[in-house]
Design a protein around this nucleic acid. Structure first.
Length: 206
DNA sequence: ATCCCGAGGG
DNA sequence: CCCTCTGGAT
């Protein structure tokens, strides 16, 4: 019910639903690392110049840290993100032959890559099941009653148990889009929400 | 003041 | 289990 309505509202494949602009798994990995505590709009503002300067893992691995910091500064957390990007690229070269690995166990060994980032890469560019839990997905999963937990890993397990694996990726991306447009953090627009009649948290304005 | 497609370290 | 990292938008 909920997933069908969201699919009607936000149609398309995981790749089509992904708002982070990219042309290959390496670029998606970079963009997703940058997306921590930042809007995707902000990430898309810096990635064109970033991808032009560092088009592949080899060039990013030997990037000048100060130049890299300057290119990503406006995404916030720029010092830790610089370390993550450099370490990630070096790990791709040293341990994975310059290719982005396509399984969870390998992805989470990369610096700056946790389950959320790994699930985005798996579902969007590798066509594999992956329910990425970011701030939107966690909030909507709780409001919709899919879970009661504030822990992203528990949210992931709870939703995985409710939805078939082939829908994990698209559901996560649709929850993000819905969380941005309608089910926003502070004052959700329940009056405009197609899920209001089945949502335990729905509140119509007084 | 709060939030945004989190992850690493203590 | 905290805490910290960081800037931009609302």
């Amino acid at each position: 019910m909920v997933t069908a309505r969201l699919a009607a509202l936000y149609p398309g494949s995981a790749k089509e639903l992904c708002a982070l602009r990219h042309d290959n798994p390496f670029q998606l990995l970079v963009a997703t690392i940058l997306s921590a505590q930042t809007t995707d709009v902000r990430v898309n503002l810096v990635t064109p110049a970033l991808f032009a300067a560092y088009p592949d893992p080899a060039s990013l691995a030997r990037a000048d840290p100060e130049k890299l910091e300057e290119l990503i500064r406006s995404t916030g957390f720029f010092r830790s993100k610089t370390k993550s990007l450099l370490g990630m690229a070096q790990a791709l070269i040293e341990r994975f032959g310059g290719d982005v690995p396509s399984d969870m166990e390998d992805l989470v060994t990369l610096p700056g890559v946790g389950r959320k980032t790994a699930n985005v890469v798996l579902s969007v560019d590798f066509g594999k099941p992956g329910f990425a839990v970011d701030t939107h997905v966690g909030r909507l999963s709780r409001r919709l009653g899919f879970t009661a937990s504030p822990d992203p890993e528990v949210v992931e397990r709870d939703v995985d148990a409710l939805v078939p694996p082939e829908e994990w990726g698209t559901l996560s991306l649709r929850l993000i889009l819905h969380g941005r447009a309608i089910c926003v953090a502070r004052t959700p627009r329940c009056g405009e929400c197609v899920l209001a009649d089945v949502c335990p948290s729905a509140r119509l304005p007084a």
